[in-house]
């Protein structure tokens, strides 16, 4: 019997709905928790980040313009497809994070549930965070949360799927688009998530995922003048990165910044206590409307 040649997968970036290699042509080795070889992933450069921001900007108006109900349906469909890739995710999480099969299964379940939890917020967040303000004049005065625009996300380094979902989903809920820098050492679940997003109904460019070194790409992403907000949660535990320096860079262009919660990564298994992360990437629009005479 002839031996079958292995068909190996090329792990690539996810930019504007396509899967390009890094513009730089570089790759790096991804190893499992025990140090064994897993894959060669694309090593993103600052130019890949620039291209991703361009794609995210192009997609932003369309995604924000969709009705909240529609965004909820699209995000829920992503959860359906995540469920379909359960085994692949579980295997990648187990290998990358050094978990037993049972534990990895639980992480995948939690990630799918987290995605559904955020999907449900799309058409509710305006009721919770919006308000009809009493004003001293003959006006209706209404405040509503609006998406801030393009958000750069440094995804958690340790929790490569549940952590990623927990930071990405809230960005998308209100109509922001995202450029995600995945966990450097554990990028495989992020790459698989990009394959899920590519085959779901999420418009191209709404989510862009880069794999590579945080030290190299994050400063350019944070400094990019066309990025409106950054989530620095994943800088905890990333080599040679100071979130305070990144925050100072972000201040040059008055970006919204979500700082890491503490010295170590938060416990992602805990259900969020509210739409805090969603509202971190919104602007409040207030409308004054004259009352009829």
């Amino acid at each position: 019997m002839s031996t079958r040649l292995e068909v190996r997968k090329t792990y690539k970036l996810f930019i504007g709905g396509a899967f390009p290699r890094s513009e730089s042509g570089r790759t790096y080795e991804v190893r499992d928790a025990k140090g064994g070889f897993l894959a060669n992933a694309a090593l993103a450069s600052r130019k890949d980040a620039r291209d991703a921001v361009k794609a995210a900007r192009a997609a932003q108006a369309g995604w924000a313009g969709a009705t909240a109900y529609n965004r909820g349906q699209v995000l829920y469909r992503v959860a359906e497809l995540l469920e379909g890739r359960r085994d692949q995710f579980a295997a990648e999480v187990a290998a990358g994070e050094g978990l037993r099969a049972k534990e990895a299964e639980a992480v995948v379940s939690a990630a799918v549930d987290r995605w559904v939890w955020y999907a449900g917020w799309t058409d509710k967040v305006a009721q919770v965070a919006g308000a009809a303000n009493p004003v001293a004049g003959p006006y209706f005065n209404l405040s509503v949360p609006e998406p801030t625009g393009v958000v750069g996300v440094v995804a958690p380094q340790r929790s490569s799927l549940l952590g990623l979902v927990s930071v990405l989903a809230p960005v998308l809920v209100t109509g922001n688009t995202a450029v995600v820098l995945s966990s450097t050492d554990r990028p495989l679940p992020a790459i698989t998530l990009s394959e899920v997003l590519a085959t779901s109904d999420v418009p191209k460019g709404v989510v862009n995922i880069l794999t590579g070194r945080v030290t190299e790409v994050a400063p350019h992403l944070v400094g990019h003048m066309d990025v409106n907000a950054v989530d620095l949660t994943g800088t905890v535990g990333a080599d040679g990165v100071s979130w305070a320096e990144l925050e100072a860079t972000a201040a040059d262009t008055v970006k919204r910044v979500v700082r890491p919660g503490g010295e170590s990564e938060p416990d992602w298994t805990v259900t969020p206590d509210g739409p805090r992360r969603i509202l971190a990437f919104t602007e409040t629009k207030t409308v004054w409307h004259p009352k009829g005479i």
Binding site: V53, R57, G223, M225, D226, V227
Partner: peptide, 9 residues
């Protein structure tokens, strides 16, 4: 400047 610009500017 070394910083990517955007159409807002």
């Amino acid at each position: 400047t070394g910083v990517y610009s955007g159409p807002d500017y």
